[in-house]
Design a protein around this nucleic acid. Structure first.
Length: 592
DNA sequence: GCCGTTTTCGGCCCGACTGTTTTCAGTCG
């Protein structure tokens, strides 16, 4: 019987092992190794269990032979004997305390041991009582102040304050953009950038961090505090400030002098894993990196500062690495060999084909709200050469087969009429459909209806919980129709509300490559599906991808930028993305 | 325990903050 463990549970377990080793005084670097492995697992956006299924655990940075072996044991038997050994003799109550801010392994152990806190369920409330009775201040190494800190930390923890939800990238980005524009209105702002996961365009964002280069930090901070949508000023210092907006979003500002801006921008852009790797790399070459600049190790010289990231990376001996790649997924090695991919960008995109119009064909799912004419106009403004309209298929429960055929015939005629009356719009049209793949793999469209379509996107919109085998078979069957050219939002995940469904992605990717089908990168805010990791895998597998917005109104066509950032995070170049092709080339692929 | 174009052995990111201490351990990002 195989056990199912979420990435979160596995990460927690690895952290507990690290904590146990720490308490027992094992080699410091072994502790670090487990912490790093935990971090990798937690940040991974594919199920670790799926990787294990494919024998790819050791592909993850920080997971080597031993830990892979232990995890394998975990999946097979539900527990790891070695870990149980490691935990022996430690009070079980110490582990929940690790999640309380201010508690590390040593403090958690010392206190839970001292007060015999063996029950993980009750440890927090028990300790709170103990702290309030003044027993902690009497322990060696503790005082009145630390006792008070512990009480406050435990109370905050009980209220679950740490559980702030991350938001999909497009919402955070829209907010950040407004603030950046506001900051740039001030002439004292030399440069302004988003930081952290926002700058790396990660698909979910926690807090919004922003950096400004200026010679007048105080004046820029004052300007920031006057941002019109500010609800509350949380913190003000000499190097930055924190505010809450009316929406409840937290915004952190950091200011730095222009001549030192490069190292600071680099450091706060992260990721943590990228920075650690970069520092190790630099260290071997005699340099010590920090957010302030670079020190030569032997020279005892003062620190050297850098105005830009380009200069900073150059000083380390590397070309500048685009923020989207800074995840320690091989980018430092690639930079070193000068093999960094030439990433796809907005200027390469020449059209898209997953757009819903308001043409009412009584669809199975929601209708769009913009007309074909409106959509073509926006596409034209975006300099697109082509646009594919892929409304949902007519509902099969409400119509007969002949009824559906008739609807599509009329739709094609209508669309062609609209094109004739819009001769000034040069955007070429593909008449398409997004067709449901039914649970048995059949397409929700009668064969004769295909005569009125250039091509179709196929997608799963129901019965998400089939077995892995059944889901794989279903998708492959749906994709095998000659006119089915694109697998829409391939994994079906909805950020924050639905996990990807279980399927054999290796088999699906291989099928798509052999049959010349495309995998979609769906740019809709809570989809962003495929995700960056899957994009990278698809590219390594020589698959073709297409970036679409799944727009349901004309304004959403601009969401393409978020699809592009997913592609960039997956190391995609122009050649990996089909809708960078010219109209003629693209048409050949789509209808060929 | 992980990792590798100076190494399969011998290294392993950096700085800040805090509280309880007289020089540092533990925690955090």
């Amino acid at each position: 019987m195989l056990s199912k463990f979420s990435n979160e549970e596995i990460a927690r377990l690895l952290r507990q092992v690290a904590a146990a080793y720490s308490v027992k005084g094992f080699n410091y670097f072994r502790i670090i190794a487990y912490d790093k492995a935990a971090e990798t697992v937690e940040k991974s956006n594919i199920d670790i269990k799926d990787l294990w299924d494919e024998n790819r655990l050791v592909d993850l940075p920080g997971i080597g032979k031993s830990i892979a072996e232990y995890l394998s044991q975990l999946f097979k038997t539900g527990h790891v004997r070695h870990f149980e050994e490691v935990f022996k003799g430690l009070p079980k109550g110490m582990f929940p305390l690790l999640d309380v801010s201010g508690f590390g392994p040593k403090k958690a152990y010392k206190i839970s041991k001292q007060f015999k806190l063996y029950n993980p369920q009750t440890v927090v409330s028990s300790l709170l009582k103990i702290a309030k009775s003044g027993k902690i201040a009497r322990l060696p190494g503790f005082g009145k102040k630390s006792e008070q800190d512990i009480i406050e930390a435990l109370e905050r923890f009980r209220q679950g304050q740490a559980k702030q939800k991350r938001m999909p990238l497009p919402y955070a980005f829209a907010t950040a953009k407004l603030i950046l524009e506001y900051l740039k209105k001030n002439p004292l702002t030399v440069k302004a950038y988003p930081l952290g996961s926002l700058r790396r365009m990660v698909s979910t964002i926690g807090d919004i961090d922003i950096a400004v280069a200026t010679k007048e930090p105080k004046k820029v901070i004052d300007w920031f505090l006057k941002y019109p949508k500010t609800n509350k000023i949380i913190e003000v210092g000499t190097s930055g400030a924190t505010i809450y907006l009316n929406t409840g979003q937290q915004i952190d500002l950091r200011v730095q002098s222009p001549q030192s801006f490069g190292a600071m921008l680099q450091y706060f852009t992260g990721s943590k894993a990228h920075n650690i790797h970069l520092r190790e790399y630099a260290l071997k070459r005699g340099m010590s990196l920090s957010e302030y600049g670079i020190k030569k190790i032997n020279a005892r010289k003062s620190i050297k500062t850098y105005a830009s990231e380009e200069e900073f990376y150059k000083a380390v001996g590397l070309p500048w690495i685009p923020p989207e790649l800074r995840e320690d997924r091989g980018e430092i090695e690639a930079a070193q060999k000068n093999y960094l991919p030439d990433l796809v960008g907005r200027s390469h995109i020449r059209g898209e084909v997953h757009v819903h119009s308001n043409y009412n064909l009584e669809p199975s799912h929601d209708l769009g709200s913009s007309s074909l004419t409106e959509l073509l106009k926006v596409a034209s403004l975006m300099n697109y050469e082509y646009l594919g309209i892929s409304d949902h298929n007519p509902s099969i429960s409400k119509h007969t087969e002949n009824g559906i055929i008739d609807i599509l015939k009329k739709r094609k005629y209508k669309f062609e009429q609209i094109l004739l009356s819009n001769k000034n719009v040069r955007v070429k049209l593909f008449i398409m459909l997004e067709v449901d793949i039914l649970p048995d793999g059949q397409l929700a469209l009668p064969e004769k209806a295909f005569n009125y379509l250039d091509a179709i996107i196929v997608s799963v919109h129901s019965s998400f919980f089939l077995t892995k085998e059944a889901m794989t078979k279903r998708i492959l069957k749906g994709l095998s129709h000659p006119k089915a050219k694109i697998l829409g939002h391939p994994t079906g995940r909805l950020i924050g509300s639905r996990e990807a469904y279980d399927a054999d992605w290796r088999a699906i990717f291989d099928f798509c490559r052999l049959k010349n089908k495309a995998l979609e990168i769906n740019a809709y805010p809570d989809r962003l599906d495929l995700n960056d990791y899957m994009v990278k895998r698809a590219i390594e597998n020589h698959n073709k991808l297409i970036i679409n917005t799944d727009s349901h109104q004309k304004e959403q066509l601009s969401l393409i930028n978020y699809g592009i950032s997913v592609a960039r995070r997956g190391w995609a170049t122009k050649n990996d993305i089909l809708n960078t092709l010219s109209y003629q080339e693209f048409k050949k692929w789509l209808t060929g």
